[in-house]
């Protein structure tokens, strides 16, 4: 068995981590603002982005009425929580956006820090997400999912 405490960042073909209900621990200490890291969790990439001041400001400035999907899609919050910038992150840790980096249209992986909204752009069918990973334009129906996770220490995240 693979050591499940090790974040899988490469492209190892044998993704034992894909087996549910695996959990993954991620050390985010080295992430400075503007950096992202991607770990594989249940076979899917999960991005942890340390957002810049500007990205956070952009995310907070968006009105709920302008969102295609007004639901937070945050597995750590009630299912009907509104998609505010704060509800996409964790209280006290607003800079860190943890999100399954899979387009909610047909499952491709959007490219980071691209598109009209400075967030993510899906190369497959052109869906565009903002700096909080919320769908803003294109065929995708929902915001990218925030997975179940918790901070086990100040700089460590446990996914799943």
């Amino acid at each position: 068995m693979a050591d499940l405490s090790e974040p899988e960042t490469g492209t190892d073909e044998h993704t034992l981590l894909a087996e549910a209900p695996a959990s993954v621990e991620v050390d985010v200490a080295s992430l400075t603002p503007g950096m992202s890291l991607v770990v594989q969790w249940r076979g899917k990439p999960v991005v942890v982005r340390n957002r810049t001041e500007q990205e956070m400001k952009d995310g907070e400035a968006v009105k709920l009425a302008d969102l295609k999907d007004p639901i937070a899609r945050n597995a750590n919050l009630p299912a009907d929580a509104p998609a505010t910038d704060a509800n996409r992150t964790t209280p006290g840790k607003e800079a860190l956006l943890v999100m399954v980096q899979v387009c909610t249209h047909l499952g491709c992986i959007p490219l980071g820090q691209e598109g009209d909204f400075g967030g993510w752009l899906c190369p497959c069918h052109g869906s565009q997400y903002d700096t909080a990973g919320r769908i803003r334009k294109g065929p995708a129906p929902e915001n990218m999912a925030v997975p179940v996770f918790q901070f086990t220490s100040d700089t460590k995240i446990r996914l799943g």
């Binding site: 492209t11 073909e13 993704t15 991607v38 899917k44 491709c108 992986i109 190369p123």
Partner: peptide
């Protein structure tokens, strides 16, 4: 190119 679950080709 071998399958890479973390990267989608630009034009599929």
């Amino acid at each position: 190119t071998i399958a890479n679950p973390l990267k989608t080709p630009a034009h599929i």
